[in-house]
């Protein structure tokens, strides 16, 4: 990293709400994200052994810089590519369906002359749709994306921890 960005050592501790990101939730709520099962590879683990504790929390960064040279464990980087693809698919799916809804709303309000006759509080309906109709759609897509993206990350954490664990490679 020659980038002038600061070293992430100054990152504050995780806020308390992240503690609810239990990896088991991710597994329970959603089907497995990766289309094909990951190859079971023994990898050099850089995490402390999970033992009986929550592996995701056990793997929380404790002052270790993320860019140290030996952080490329193959199992996890396989899942990393899966995570990037999943997030990109999610974003593209959201933007495509958002644009479809926008196009539909636009067509409805501009191409149906009968709507001009519907006057609410003195304002024709197409004007009202144009002024207010798009924001609920935008916020709804934002909420859906934020929830789904966090779920992708939890699922990734669960899978990657499983892969990096000593014996029990892969999710149960």
């Amino acid at each position: 990293m020659t980038g002038p960005g600061p070293s992430p050592d100054d990152r504050p501790p995780r806020p308390p709400d992240r503690a609810s990101d239990h990896p088991a939730d991710g597994r329970a709520h959603a089907p497995a994200p990766t289309p094909r099962p990951a190859p079971r590879v023994r990898v050099r683990s850089t995490d402390p052994p999970p033992g009986g504790t929550d592996p995701a929390r056990a793997a929380a960064p404790s002052g270790t810089p993320p860019d140290r040279p030996d952080d490329a464990d193959d199992g996890a980087s396989h899942y990393t590519r899966g995570l990037v693809r999943a997030q990109l698919r999610l974003g593209l799916a959201c933007v495509v369906s958002f644009l479809a809804v926008v196009a539909l709303l636009t067509l409805t309000m501009s191409a149906v002359p009968a709507l001009d006759q519907v006057v609410v509080l003195g304002v024709p309906l197409p004007w009202l749709v144009h002024a207010y109709g798009f924001y609920p759609v935008i916020v709804a897509f934002g909420v859906v994306f934020a929830v789904a993206a966090a779920r992708n990350e939890r699922r990734y954490a669960a899978l990657a921890d499983g892969a990096a664990g000593p014996d029990d490679g892969g999710a149960p």
């Binding site: 995780r14 995701a56 960064p61 952080d71 990393t80 954490a157």
Partner: peptide
Amino acid sequence: HVPERRRS
């Protein structure tokens, strides 16, 4: 792309 706590 990787969540912060996974970066160790």
